[in-house]
Design a binder for these strands. Structure first.
Lengths: 151, 151
DNA sequence: TATTGTTATACTCTATAACTATA
DNA sequence: TATAGTTATAGAGTATAACAATA
């Protein structure tokens, strides 16, 4: 290809680290209670952060197909953490809202997550944590919605 | 808990970005050819980078259970990308080695990956890519082998 | 006709447990 | 007995396609 070796190595290194971050994700997932898989945890966090929303927005924010978000949301509804309200503007859709039970569950997740990260990030400065967070957000942004490239 | 809100928010933000990086990983996986799932691609890259190794080392480097790495390696062996050589020091084990076909396949993966990242990282400076790579490596290191905490 | 959402199906990745062979 | 590796099984996450209801 027309790319210099230096560039190829740089990209390869980044790809390797992104790929390997799965181990960290699995570590975080282990801090979750047995009745709350990570997909459900993400749904709860999104509703707390962004407020009520429709299914299509959940799938957009999670960057997954709506068939996937639909399953995750169904799990949270089954456990009483989320309720489906009528969408005044569109009868095909419903508004998803965090329940009080959902807020309680989310508080529990937060406690567990904080304790786990405090253990593992002991050697990190606040600035470094923030820097990594910023760069990850930017990376995700640069990739946009990768699913779009396919459709 | 005893953690100030500022810390909890900092950790929560990091966790959200780490969790969301799955979308980037899936985007990278889409650049792979149909006969090479990402697990196989990682195996090939590890053997190229570190040279011949045993199964236990693959599982260690991938930070997964050996039952998992065993399946990934089996896939690459089935396709002729990796061969199993006798381990002179231990008859229970075998040495895994990249074949010429494996190197060819890896070169193809590299071309696809480089092209994909060049498209998506157009706005990034080399230094920022390197910085993110370094921080990700450090994060993974800080978590150590998360599976160890469980056993 | 097009869009919102759900469900059925299939594939990938992972972990646990049971098992074989060797140390 | 303990360790290296494989395989069976099960669970979570995801995508595609077919479908229902509404716009």
């Amino acid at each position: 290809m027309g790319y210099p070796m230096e560039t190829r190595n740089r990209y390869e290194n980044l790809a390797r680290q992104v790929s390997a971050i799965g181990a960290v994700k699995r570590g975080m997932a282990r801090s979750l209670p047995a009745d709350c898989p990570s997909g459900s945890a993400v749904v709860l966090a999104l509703l707390k952060r962004h407020g009520d929303m429709r299914m299509s927005r959940v799938s957009e924010l999670m960057a997954v197909d709506m068939s996937v978000s639909s399953r995750h949301v169904a799990h949270t509804v089954d456990r009483g953490w989320v309720e489906r309200l009528p969408d005044p503007g569109d009868k095909r859709s419903r508004l998803l809202r965090l329940t009080d039970g959902g807020r309680d569950k989310l508080a529990e997740l937060d406690r567990r997550l904080t304790a786990m990260l405090a253990r593992n990030l002991a050697g990190w400065s606040d600035d470094d944590v923030d820097l990594l967070t910023t760069l990850l957000a930017r990376l995700r942004d640069s990739f946009g919605d990768c699913r779009a490239h396919h459709a």
